[in-house]
Amino acid sequence: MTDISLEKWAQEIEKIIQGCKEHFQLGEGKVLVIGCSTSEIIGEKIGTAGTMEVAAILFEALQKYAKENHFALAFQCCEHLNRALVIEKKTALEKNWEEVSVIPAPHAGGSMATFAYQHLEDPIVVESIQADAGIDIGDTFIGMHLKSVVVPVRIEQKQLGRAHVTIAITRPKLIGGARAIYE
Rank of each mutant, 00 (worst) to 15 (best):
I135L: 07
W97D: 00
V149H: 12
H164D: 08
I103T: 14
G110K: 04
P106T: 08
V153Y: 04
I124G: 02
Q118M: 09
L120T: 06
P123N: 08
Q159Y: 14
V125I: 13
A116W: 13
K95V: 00
V150A: 13
D132A: 09
I142N: 01
R154E: 06
A163M: 06
L120V: 06
I129T: 08
Y117V: 07
A133W: 05
G134W: 07
I155G: 10
G138R: 03
M144C: 02
Q157Y: 08
A113F: 05
T140L: 09
V165K: 01
D139I: 06
M144F: 04
V102F: 05
G161M: 12
S111C: 06
M144Q: 05
G138A: 04
A113R: 02
G109S: 10
V126N: 11
Q159N: 14
G109N: 07
H145K: 08
A113S: 10
V150G: 08
P104M: 12
I135P: 15
A113L: 04
V151Q: 01
D136C: 08
L146S: 01
S101Y: 00
K147N: 11
D136T: 11
L160M: 15
W97E: 01
K158G: 06
R154L: 09
A116Y: 14
D122Q: 15
K147D: 12
L146G: 02
E94I: 09
L160G: 11
F141W: 06
A113C: 04
D122C: 06
G161W: 11
V149N: 10
I142T: 11
N96D: 13
V153P: 01
I135F: 10
P104K: 12
L160A: 15
E156R: 15
S101F: 07
Y117M: 09
H145P: 08
L146N: 08
I137Q: 06
V149I: 09
I142K: 02
V153T: 04
K95N: 05
A133L: 02
D139W: 01
